[in-house]
Simulated scan of single mutants.
Amino acid sequence: METLKEFMLLFRMSPSNEQPTVEQMATMQNQWKNYIGSIASQAKLVNTSRLGFKGSCINPKGQISNNIYISDNQTLSGNMVVKAISLQEAENLAKNCPVLAMGGSVEVRPLIPMEF
């Protein structure tokens, strides 16, 4: 049996001031519930979390700006750690992510354990 490695899926979205309707929110929640549930049912989910769209950035000089980092009109909106045999398998798990249908993107990265 092959050893499973951990990969982080980084979800990126364009920030928006538009508030989704109640129906849109219910649809999105069901899509995410089904997506996360599918990965969990395969025993490949480690954890997942959403990120708020407010925060701050601290530069190397220790200066704090009261905004989040946005590049190419996208910012991190959440992440998920999954177990997979390979990067390709982790990519295949990411292909069904609801953020893609919402105009966002998913970056897939292997996790490298920190050794002290």
Rank of each mutant, 00 (worst) to 15 (best):
L10H: 06
R12W: 10
M13I: 11
P15N: 06
S16V: 12
N17Y: 04
E18C: 03
Q19I: 15
P20S: 03
T21K: 11
E23H: 09
E23S: 12
Q24G: 14
Q24A: 15
M25T: 13
T27G: 03
M28I: 14
Q31K: 14
W32N: 10
K33G: 14
K33A: 15
I36S: 13
I36Y: 13
G37A: 14
I39S: 13
A40T: 09
A40M: 15
A40D: 15
S41M: 13
Q42S: 08
A43T: 11
A43D: 15
K44I: 00
L45P: 11
N47Y: 07
T48K: 00
S49V: 01
S49N: 09
R50M: 03
R50I: 02
L51S: 00
G52P: 01
G55T: 11
S56D: 04
S56E: 06
C57P: 00
P60L: 14
P60V: 12
P60A: 13
G62E: 10
I64R: 09
S65T: 04
I68H: 00
S71Q: 06
N73C: 06
T75A: 14
L76G: 07
N79E: 06
M80E: 04
M80I: 11
V81H: 02
V82Y: 12
S86I: 03
L87S: 02
Q88D: 12
A90M: 07
E91K: 15
N92Y: 09
L93G: 09
C97E: 05
C97N: 15
C97H: 10
P98H: 02
L100Q: 07
L100G: 05
